[in-house]
Amino acid sequence: MIGRLQGVVVEKQAPEVLIDVNGVGYEVQMPMTSFYELPGLNETAIVHIHFVVREDAQLLYGFITKQERALFRLLIKTNGVGPKLALTILSGMTAAEFVGCVERDDVATLVKLPGVGKKTAERLLVEMRDKLKGLMEASAGSEREFVLQSNYTPAPVVNTAEEDAIAALLSLGYKPAQASKAVSAAYVDGISSEELIKLSLKSML
């Protein structure tokens, strides 16, 4: 059972990151809220893992904090919500924003996420309400746990920011037309892929 990885970030292609741990590369899928907080390439990161074993695959889902992982685990216990949809939910909003939706019974915001219909949104609000109380109490005052080496320099911005952002949105379940429109509207010269994805996701909520 893999519960935590500490290694060097060697590839970043949202929502997936490749982490080298003593010469072994682990492919980890992450919600964008965690992906944004990864250090740059060739820097060291600590990622908390939810490990899924299927007949045809072994999948790693990564999170910057244990609280984010705990929320993911609560989400996938909800009827009709699998790991992919849980990643989409946590990519479209932070844990605090999701809790806010639950507290306000905000179906309208949840249904804007790809793959979340009205019935799923309503089920989430009902099933998550009591479960989230303990989670948010445990997360109060918690710190994000990742390591940056002292010689860290930001990864250079490349010309494929738009392509990377569109690919990330498509992998999260958004339709090509939606993704292209949102990315084009948010794009400005020099913007990084991560920031472009973040702004594009925010514009669709």
Rank of each mutant, 00 (worst) to 15 (best):
E163R: 14
G82P: 12
V52S: 12
S34M: 11
V116Y: 00
A121S: 10
L18Q: 08
L71M: 15
V107C: 03
A70I: 01
N79Y: 02
E97L: 03
F63Q: 13
P15V: 09
I2H: 11
T94N: 05
E127V: 02
H50I: 04
I64A: 01
S192T: 15
G62Y: 12
G40D: 14
P156M: 03
Y152F: 15
K202C: 00
E43W: 01
S184D: 11
V8L: 13
K112S: 08
R73L: 14
V116H: 04
L124H: 01
T120I: 14
K202V: 01
R129T: 03
K77H: 12
Q67L: 00
L74T: 01
Q178W: 09
I64V: 15
E43M: 10
F35R: 09
G92S: 14
T120C: 05
A14I: 06
L75E: 01
V116F: 04
S184A: 13
V81R: 01
G62R: 08
E55Y: 03
A165E: 02
L41H: 05
V53G: 00
S203G: 11
T65Q: 11
G82E: 03
D106L: 10
F35I: 08
L38T: 08
P154R: 10
S192L: 09
D130Y: 02
V99R: 14
Q58N: 12
R54E: 10
A185R: 11
E103Q: 14
V53I: 14
A182N: 08
V111C: 06
G92Y: 07
V53T: 11
A138E: 15
D164P: 05
K175W: 09
V28E: 07
V99H: 09
V158S: 13
V81N: 00
N42F: 11
L148G: 00
Q67A: 09
L196S: 07
E162K: 15
F63M: 09
M204L: 14
L90V: 10
L113N: 03
E137P: 02
K175N: 09
E143A: 13
G7H: 07
D189V: 08
V157Y: 06
V183A: 05
Y26P: 08
F51A: 06
E97Q: 15
D164R: 12
G40W: 07
V53Y: 04
L169D: 07
E55A: 14
Y26A: 09
A57V: 00
K181W: 00
L75G: 02
G80T: 05
L172T: 07
Q13L: 12
T160Q: 14
L60I: 09
R123E: 01
K77L: 02
V21H: 10
V24C: 03
V81A: 04
R54K: 15
R54H: 12
I197C: 11
M32Y: 14
L135K: 04
E37S: 06
A177I: 13
L18R: 08
T109E: 11
T94D: 08
Y36F: 06
L5S: 07
